[in-house]
Design a protein around this nucleic acid. Structure first.
Lengths: 220, 220
DNA sequence: TTTTTTTTTTAGATAACTCTAATTTTATTT
DNA sequence: AAATAAAATTAGAGTTATCTAAAAAAAAAA
């Protein structure tokens, strides 16, 4: 079964939305995620339904099938492996990789991905801390918590971000909060949900709830 | 100026045909090179003419413009850099790289190509021995001669192949005639144009004119 | 429970690229 | 130079993916 580049992008978006939102994914959500119009989404949903990567009943909703999940995870695997390549080997910064990986993920060649995986030493996480599915689509994700939901005096390690826009990643780089950084919550302001953290046992950092809620921490 | 993937492929084919054939490139030639129908070529020539990458007068012929040459060389540069990557880093054999490089060459990102070039140590030739244009499209190609045109007792080094089909490359690999091999012409048969050569001072090899004419040698 | 609003889908167009079949132009023969 | 063959182009249609505008269905509000 072969998907076009556009179909892959839709399916990937649907997969991501199904994972996070839990409840059913709406046409509007997909349109927003993929920067297109709802009319185009309706069209594509019909096609994806025919290809049986989603179960689709119009006006009612959709559900991603097992086949769909497998294919989506394959694309996600490719995307994340390429991100590792770009950062580890070509010294891209983590806020520059997304756009290019978005193109590279559609290159068709199983041999290429196998070899790339080996070349990168079978990485388990991408530069943003997101897990890389194996070739069968299995993901071992560590349990993570949003920074703003941690309690005072709790510590952990930054392992991922929710918002991976270039602007946000640049901001994090600037203030010194990188993936892998060891942190500890020093204080929380109930009023606005902002937090104060200690980074790498030396630097104190103040963050709005908005920022903190986009940072995922592996508790220790 | 932006070209689509299809336009890039046509332009690349036109560039290659203009280089080798010397005289004007025909619609049929392009169709054959790109595995499509003459009707599709006519359509595309009109478009490429409008974009001023070729000068095109229908029924008369076409000529690639300076702009067209520059863009074609950029694509060729990308293709050959990726081939080096696949062979040097991912251990592809030289007969497996073409199809994948054909896809990778269309990835859009100047930063990516700059970094890739640096990562590969600014290679000057691809795995088939073909020169890699620099970012301005300059090519320093060494003067080369087809193996069947060499004289008896002349020596040299295999630096490229004309026919880079997987079948041909596999054949060469099998008989032990690789890029970089040092060879010497032992004998030539006038009757059918076949040649006998010594490879790496140890192995004797007999080749039809057909094969020999597809092997390019840097004379020494 | 109507009415209104929001969401979703269809209808109809457009753009890029491809094809087959028909036509036109150029080249080759006789 | 006329007839024939070859090459190139246009006409018309199909595919994929997109859009705007209109219609239909579902959800929310009065």
């Amino acid at each position: 079964m072969e998907l076009t580049t556009a179909e892959e992008n839709y399916l990937k978006a649907i997969y991501h939305l199904s994972e996070e939102g839990k409840k059913s994914v709406s046409t509007n959500d997909i349109a927003a995620a993929i920067q297109t119009k709802p009319a185009s989404v309706s069209d594509m949903l019909r096609k994806l339904g025919e290809k049986e990567v989603i179960q689709y009943r119009k006006y009612y909703g959709l559900q991603i099938t097992e086949l769909g999940k497998r294919l989506a995870l394959q694309t996600i695997r490719k995307h994340r492996l390429w991100e590792v390549f770009l950062v580890d080997k070509l010294h891209f910064s983590w806020d520059e990789v997304h756009e290019v990986a978005e193109q590279l993920e559609h290159i068709q060649s199983t041999l290429l991905i196998e070899r790339l995986d080996a070349y990168l030493n079978y990485p388990k996480f991408d530069p943003h801390g997101d897990p890389i599915p194996d070739e069968y689509g299995d993901v071992r994700s560590r349990p993570r918590i949003a920074l703003n939901e941690m309690n005072i005096d709790q510590g952990g390690q930054i392992v991922a971000v929710k918002d991976s826009s270039a602007a946000f990643l640049r901001y994090l780089d600037k203030v010194g909060a990188y993936i892998g950084a060891r942190i500890k919550v020093l204080d929380k302001v109930e009023f606005d949900g902002s937090v104060e953290i200690l980074v790498d046992q030396k630097k104190t950092l103040f963050m709005s709830k908005d920022v903190a809620s986009n940072i995922l921490v592996l508790q220790s």
